[in-house]
Design a protein around this nucleic acid. Sequence first.
DNA 1: GTCTATATGAAGATAGAC
DNA 2: GTCTATCTTCATATAGAC
Lengths: 194, 194
Amino acid sequence: MSGRAGTSKRLADVPRSAAQTRVVTAALGLFARHGVNGTSLQMIADELGVTKAAIYHQFPTKDEIVIAAVEVELVKVEAALDAADAEPDPHRALDLVLTQVIDSAVAQRGMVGVVQHDPVIVRHLARHRPFRDLMQRLSAVLTRGDAGVDARVRAAMVSAAIGGAVVHPLVADVDDDTLRTEVRRLAGDLLDRD
Amino acid sequence: MSGRAGTSKRLADVPRSAAQTRVVTAALGLFARHGVNGTSLQMIADELGVTKAAIYHQFPTKDEIVIAAVEVELVKVEAALDAADAEPDPHRALDLVLTQVIDSAVAQRGMVGVVQHDPVIVRHLARHRPFRDLMQRLSAVLTRGDAGVDARVRAAMVSAAIGGAVVHPLVADVDDDTLRTEVRRLAGDLLDRD
DNA sequence: GTCTATATGAAGATAGAC
DNA sequence: GTCTATCTTCATATAGAC
């Protein structure tokens, strides 16, 4: 996938080295289990079998690791939003985004949840321009441009439901395929029903 | 599973002093904003205008504060579950619980979310018997005893949606009353629709 | 119930060798 | 790219006076 437009507001313009990717992958898993504040550089280092200093050689601060980790998840959402923008039918556009977000959430149970709920990440989401813009695009698709209270509450609920449901103990034993299908169907119901 | 005998599995059997209540209230607010790991005893102390040592005089460890804080929120849920147990009509029983949980979530936007999503609290929820039992009772009401996948996914989504939606930026400007009504209606839809 | 003072450890982060 | 060693700051937690 390429065709990058000239906008400066996009994610992931920075290529990562193999070592950086390893750090981010390890961090993402630990963030999902322990939260950002509950994950120390020592834990990331231990996970990779290296020392903290080796991590600091790859990223100047812990914050940069957090941002890179969030980007890994959001790039997929961005791609889905790009596809949605190219789709004239708003109903199909919504379907593209919903399916992708749910797939991500189910595939890596916990990742989407941590992006939505971890206080540290939420702060980053609110502060960094590219993140804010992306969340706004996502909201626009979920509400289908409807700025009314009803549409916004639905969008907020669907958004929260997807991230939260996949890690809920109640569905821990449900296989990925079933979970994906069920959540997709119910999310659609919640958004569409009048 | 109605008549609850004098089991020892109930919450909040321990009376708290005024000073303890002050600590827990301050802690709860900070937990919601910064997460448990992001909240230090110093922050709690500062919030109350006292020193850390004064806090330690009230609670032996930070963990105990976390447990007490979670109890404050869950006692309300427990009361609603008790009322639901006394209600023969399962549809009305569900309504009682749903309304109470949503009221709590909206009244203290963030509290319910932190209980559901903070990794530290989730760990406590999974470990402590009274908490586990309570969550199980809540799940039973939300699924109305249906152990099928569909019912469990719905329950998980509703549960996550309530906690997550009320803190979503999309609905930050919606007043409490409207939010309560909208969320209650959509939660009911999600659970009932076939 | 609150304080001052302190112990102990782990956190994020840096310098410089290999 | 990784290491050892070190710095600073802040965390949880304790002892004992008022």
